[in-house]
Amino acid sequence: MLSNHKYIAFETIVIKEVRRFTRIWLQTLVPPAITISLYFVIFGNLVGRRIGDMGGFNYMEFIIPGLIMMAVIQNSYSNVVSSFFSHKFQRSVEELLVSPVPNVIILSGFVVGGMVRGLLVGGIVTVMSLFFIDLEIQHPLVTLSVVLLTALVFSLAGFINALFANSFDDISIIPTFVLTPLIYLGGVFYSSSLLPEFWRSVSALNPIFYMVNTFRYGFLGVSDVPVVGAFVILLGFAVVLFSACLLLLNRGTGLRS
């Protein structure tokens, strides 16, 4: 395929993906906004006042970066997993498979679609948080790159989930039993300095812990983890997952009988 043809194919997939989640905005954009504002009100405002400071900041300031990150993770993942699985389920994925679109373009198209939704919801949550506090961003470049990488990693993870999924159950098992616990234990609501030694080292095995902390560093300038190390881990995840997706696509896993 010529490179301008590839670009058209890529653009086609991305536009289709963005259209899909904006068409069903009531299911895709509104619920995360509502959930996160409930967190703001309950944890930030009501309970937060009693908690006092966390990691040297008031509790609201402390949790907002984590909540934004939570929205990005959940939405990039669920966009790719539900969109790609529904293509499989309705067999419309065959439209792509019979066409000359290279696998790397198929993957990139869906992943960028997921990233756009993740970042859009992240943006909505960020704007809503401005009603509660004045956000200041200490390191904009760190903030931006960590949120992009996170959206990329979870879009890729969603893609793998969709490839292996055979039923609608299969696309909710991982988010419920793996993703949600990892997010809640990933330091969104507390500083790891509160944890006993043992649980602190367990947290160090959780990739989301690094994402949340690095993102928080971007906003507040403090982090429980070394920022450079966190980037290395994130990049490593992105590379490994991207290669895995490509390998599975080339093999036709879950797609070609």
Binding site: M1, L2, N4, H5, K6, Y7, I8, A9, E11, T12, I13, K16, E95, L96, S99, P100, V101
Partner: peptide
């Protein structure tokens, strides 16, 4: 549906 398919072929 038809336009998307054309897009996949790079048209």
């Amino acid at each position: 549906i038809v336009m998307t398919q054309a897009g996949y072929y790079g048209m």
